[in-house]
Amino acid sequence: MSAASLSAQFLDIVIALLLAPLLTGWVNQWRARLQNRSAPSLLQPYRLLHKLFHKESVLAEHASPLFRGAPYILLGCMTLACAIVPTLSTDLPLAPAADAIALVGLFALGRLFISLAAMDIGTAFGTLGARREMLVGFLAEPALLMVLFSVSQIAGSTSLTTIVERLADQGPAIYTSVMFAGVAFTLVALAENARIPVDNPATHLELTMIHEALILEYSGRHLALIEWAASLKLFAYSGIGLALFFPWGVSEGQSPFAVLYALPVLILKLAIGGFLLAVLETISAKLRIFRVPEFLATAFLLAVIGMLVNNLQGH
């Protein structure tokens, strides 16, 4: 573990923490533009966080410590997730501690805590949100796992950093399985980040909301932490998508400056990805909640087909 890799790791985390709200802002801005609304500022998410941190936290009388602790654990999970996803450099000292499977586990751990916290107050909306969140989760998690498996079979490793290194060295190549995995990943990422066909981040309509129902009882700094964690999750998912399908331009730890070269590439990739996400959200319509399992099952099965094709073609 050299100083270079330590600094790369540090930079990876700091960039994730700082850039994540910007990515959310970017997506929101493009969505507004595409929908002919006047767009909020790019910095709006930062202002929101700042405002929420300033406000006092209002807790229900009977909230347990679990309720207060969950936002911190959620943020911790998402930060760790961002720390092990190679966005800037593949020379990350933390990465060997958690491979792709553990990454899925990390998301699941965050989900478990936030769902439990939503049930803690004992309101109708909280439990409803928890149930729906777990519904999305139990289909999205295996689908994500299968996506990761398809790619790790090609790269011969479940470690994300090794996957990126090997795929990047190989140069552009088209694998049948990766195409399926890519489509499945897009579906999963939309569902997991509470995006339009599954959930609408802009609504508080009880019949449709999932994520907002979960966090209805949170306020002040706890809400800020959750919002930040949600941004980080989007960032982590973007990072995973880039790592699996567009692994080029990530530094492999040759020199400390390589990380700095990787940064503009990352920002460019994220900007394009965020724009595509906004387009995708604009052209699709919200699904009824009972179509969501179908949507996710499709993702899951596509990922399985990807893995099958991979095995069958003997790559």
Binding site: I174, T176, F180, T298, L302
Partner: peptide, 21 residues
Amino acid sequence: IQLIDFLAALLLMLSFAMISQ
């Protein structure tokens, strides 16, 4: 060869899209 593989995958995906459309 890669391009044909790619197109084959696309064809399969379109078939799956058709059965679920």
